[in-house]
Write a protein that binds this DNA or RNA. Structure first.
Lengths: 145, 145
DNA sequence: ATCATTTTGAGACAGCTTATCAATTTCAAC
DNA sequence: GTTGAAATTGATAAGCTGTCTCAAAATGAT
């Protein structure tokens, strides 16, 4: 099928399936391919996205499969607002947000020093970080008057 | 009423109410008092807690009021699992969270260095920080096996 | 090809949160 | 202190996400 792009992840999935007596299906292959193209996505969004090419792919199957990816260590569920975001673990370059409470403007940033300190905090508490979320709320220069 | 314990927060609430043509009610005062005694709580938990002394306080009112506190900057909503936790902002400065994606355990921490770096990022982008949210997701020592 | 086992799809169902609306409360103006 | 427009409340209905159910289909070892 589709090029040798996501071979490593496909292998990870197959290993997980084998280890748990689960089967490799057309749907699981399809959903993994679509998932790996995203940085993060909701089940609903993927449902609509895949409906174009696969109208009969059920929403329940997508939920089940994304949760399977979490078990296999390929994805990570994050609850955001009222929905669950499934983050692509293999996708690096995490970006954090500065959010203006006045006008809603969002500025993305990255800061290695902060990430390093986060790692220290985690280790000190016996945690292994998978992902994180950092949002700074405040007023941008325009809104501060 | 209840001692001069949460005067500052009560003032913050009253200012917010005045600014938005909202009214100061018995329920809002009651819920704020109960809320400030917690570090974080769910609407459901507060409902049961307050039911002992106020059996006719509606769940919808608690949700509405906790969301109001978020608008007023007294609370911050955090979605975990299928529920929403309302964090008490005023509680000892600001605490961030280490969240175990395996068992749901939450460890709170504070780190001045991270806060300082956040401030730097904000200044560099012309922002004045009002509050922030930092959540580290990963596996705790037990769940890592 | 056979067949036990797993998976799928569609919809029913369940948990958490918000919307609805008549009755009540607040509060500013008398 | 009354009055009355506007906001709030409580009870419940409705909405949204996500999971469960189960008959039909697909998988994969033999």
């Amino acid at each position: 099928m589709a090029s040798g792009k996501h071979v490593k992840e496909m292998e990870t999935l197959k290993e997980h399936l084998a280890k748990h007596q689960l089967k490799f299906t057309r749907q699981r292959e399809l959903i993994l391919g679509a998932f790996l193209r995203q940085e993060h996505i909701t089940a609903e969004a993927m449902y609509h996205q895949l409906a174009k090419t696969d109208p009969h792919l059920g929403l329940a199957t997508i939920y089940r499969t994304l949760n399977l990816f979490c078990d296999a260590g390929l994805a990570q569920a994050r609850h955001f607002g009222s929905q669950t975001q499934y983050d692509n673990i293999s996708h690096k370059g995490h970006h954090d947000h500065l959010i203006c409470t006045g006008c809603g403007k969002i500025v993305e940033f990255e800061n290695c020093d902060i990430e390093r300190l986060q790692e220290e905090v985690a280790v000190r508490n016996g945690f292994t970080i998978q992902t994180h979320r950092l949002e700074l709320y405040g007023l941008c220069s325009r809104c501060r008057h």
